[in-house]
Computed example of a mutant assay.
Amino acid sequence: MHIDEWLQVIPAGWLYATVAFVIGFESLGIPLPGEIVLVSAAILASKGVVDPVWVGACASAGAIVGDSAGYAVGRKGGAPMFARLGRRFPRHFGPRHVGKAEDYFRRFGMWAVFVGRFVALLRILAGPLAGALRMPYWRFAVANVLGGIVWAGGTTAVVFSLGLVAEKWLKNFSWAALAVAVVFGIATTLYLRRRAASALDEGDLKGIVRGPVDM
């Protein structure tokens, strides 16, 4: 059963809780499909299954609380924690991934927390890495709250609106048009994934969690 099918069969209250918990734990640093869950819930909202406002609110709360918890864990665990995570989850916390994220944090400071909410790799690393690098908490909190609300609320609003338009559009066009739309969507997703992978491969890596940084 796909995620969207599973979400559709559970009660609305549990769906909101699922959105908050999955996004929260992903923000804490656990590799979970937070964005997929959010998009699926927003699509269900466009079909009238759940309320989009509650979806966006729960997603925002999960993102903010999860990132804050991740900050606390990273501040306490530091470099040894990333070393352990790298051995357990090499695809997400390997030296190359953490090194790229750390370099990004050192260059952009609190903006890395805000923008990182929109990037799959940084969405997992933002909280723990900001804590490990000793970013002042007030700076982290501002970027975390704004980033969480803009990402979660914005994604929900965009997907919900597109869902309404798509449902109306599909009533007026043939199945052939639907097939074209699906192919276009898949092609766009593959292209964006390839661009993201290329971005991660660019540039030289620096040391991992080398100490406090002025942000």
Rank of each mutant, 00 (worst) to 15 (best):
His2Arg: 13
Ile3Glu: 10
Ile3His: 04
Asp4Asn: 11
Glu5Leu: 13
Glu5Trp: 07
Gln8Glu: 13
Ile10Asp: 00
Trp14Glu: 07
Ala20Ser: 06
Ala20Trp: 04
Ile23Met: 11
Gly24Asp: 06
Leu28Tyr: 09
Pro31Ser: 12
Glu35Met: 06
Ile36Asp: 10
Ile36Asn: 12
Leu38Arg: 00
Ser40Leu: 08
Ala42Leu: 00
Ile43Met: 11
Leu44Ser: 10
Val49Ser: 09
Asp51His: 14
Asp51Lys: 12
Pro52Leu: 02
Val53Tyr: 13
Val55Asn: 14
Val55Cys: 08
Val55His: 10
Val55Gln: 13
Gly56Gln: 02
Gly56Tyr: 10
Cys58Asp: 05
Ala59Trp: 02
Gly62Gln: 02
Ala63Val: 02
Ala63Arg: 05
Val65Gly: 01
Val65Ser: 01
Val65Cys: 03
Asp67His: 01
Ala69Met: 15
Val73Gln: 02
Gly78Phe: 12
Pro80Trp: 05
Pro80Glu: 08
Gly86Glu: 10
Phe89Gly: 05
His92Phe: 15
His92Cys: 11
Gly94Lys: 08
Arg96Cys: 01
Val98Ser: 09
Gly99Cys: 10
Asp103Val: 10
Asp103Asn: 14
Tyr104Asn: 11
Trp111Thr: 08
Ala112Trp: 02
Val113Gly: 04
Val113Phe: 03
Leu122Asn: 12
Arg123Tyr: 07
Ile124Pro: 00
Leu125Glu: 04
Gly127Phe: 01
Gly127Ser: 04
Leu129Trp: 03
Gly131Arg: 05
Leu133His: 12
Arg134Thr: 08
Arg134Ser: 06
Met135Ile: 03
Tyr137Ala: 09
Arg139Phe: 00
Ala141Cys: 09
Ala143Arg: 09
Asn144Tyr: 06
Gly148Asn: 03
Trp151Asp: 01
Ala152Tyr: 03
Ala152Gly: 08
Gly154Phe: 06
Thr156Pro: 05
Ala157Phe: 15
Val158Met: 07
Val159Gln: 04
Val159Met: 13
Val159Tyr: 09
Val159Leu: 07
Val159Asp: 07
Ser161Ala: 15
Glu167Phe: 08
Lys168His: 15
Lys168Leu: 06
Phe173Pro: 00
Trp175Ile: 14
Ala177Phe: 10
Ala177Asn: 15
Ala177Pro: 00
Ala179Lys: 07
Val182Met: 11
Val183Phe: 07
Phe184Tyr: 13
Phe184Pro: 01
Phe184Val: 14
Gly185Glu: 06
Ile186Phe: 14
Thr188Cys: 10
Arg194Glu: 04
Arg195Ala: 14
Ala196Phe: 09
Ser198Gly: 11
Ala199Thr: 04
Glu202Lys: 15
Gly207Tyr: 03
Gly207Leu: 05
Ile208Gly: 07
Arg210Phe: 03
Val213His: 15
Asp214Leu: 11
Asp214Glu: 15
Met215Val: 13
